[in-house]
Nucleic acid binder design. Structure first.
Lengths: 146, 146
DNA sequence: ATACCTGCAAATGTTTTGCGACTAA
DNA sequence: TTAGTCGCAAAACATTTGCAGGTAT
């Protein structure tokens, strides 16, 4: 399996784009984050390494990283874009705690099967799908009770 | 079953809010739309009846209508808020055509069951959930082939 | 050398807010 | 009468874009 960096640099070459220092730094930091960083989280992290970098470059580069198939853009309805690592990371869904913001990733073969059935029933060809369950996580539920 | 207007006016009274002409007009027009209007669609429709109304009033009022349990806020990832009628309208999900923008509503008991199972497995108490399947609808698929 | 990129600032588009005038009860 | 609303304009955000100067190949 090729490394994410290899995939990225090959993608860039194929598209006639350059493998700049900024793009490498942003990819590095993004791949290290294990969660679902908002664009501003990434901006802050990248600035620690390279304070000169601009927010627009983060936006532009994350777009390219998505196009290269290494990231997936997420919308948690909090008014800003989030990104998650797609590299070696199968399709999944999210449980989102409304109290503490914790995000739990879930996968379900049964769920995928039902989605396929529903799509088929309506003659619909699936490109992508997203399911989010908002609620209260175990930890916050316990706190509420006390 | 009470009418939507009754529910709305009772909600307003309970909250110490007024049942203004604008609120009534916006609710009327919103209830008549059978789809998932964006805020600007509503703005245009309402302005036909009452050209003096301001966009801020639409935003503020749709928020109140949601709070009253008569509308549900939707995010189709197109950069603007949409609303759908929640009155006498059970929980459901959406198939969204990426070509023509058509939205098909789907319900599935099996799906709800799986969501409950997944939440339970993680000690999660569900508040609300949303599933969206993006793809190509039957009609657009046919057009592509020709 | 020469595309391509970057950082900055300005522009954009959506949504929210402050406020003086107005209105429902 | 008077709290609550409205319309407007300005502010607040997130995101995108134009451009002059810098960089990778």
């Amino acid at each position: 399996m090729e490394s994410a960096k290899t995939i990225f640099s090959q993608y860039l070459r194929k598209k006639g784009m350059l493998y700049s220092k900024q793009r490498e730094q942003i990819l590095d930091i993004f791949l290290k984050t294990e969660k679902h960083p908002a664009i501003n989280n990434l901006y802050d992290l990248v600035r620690k390494k390279n304070p000169k970098i601009g927010l627009a470059t983060i936006y532009r580069t994350m777009e390219v990283i998505c196009d290269a198939g290494l990231a997936r853009k997420l919308d948690f309805g909090d008014g800003t874009k989030h990104y998650e690592n797609k590299y070696k990371h199968p399709h999944h869904h999210h449980l989102i705690c409304l109290k503490c913001g914790k995000i739990i990733e879930i996968t379900s073969g049964k769920l995928e099967e039902i989605q396929r059935q529903l799509a088929k029933k309506h003659g619909f060809t699936i490109s992508r799908d997203t399911m989010k369950i908002f609620g209260i996580c175990k930890t916050c539920r316990r706190k509420e009770k006390s």
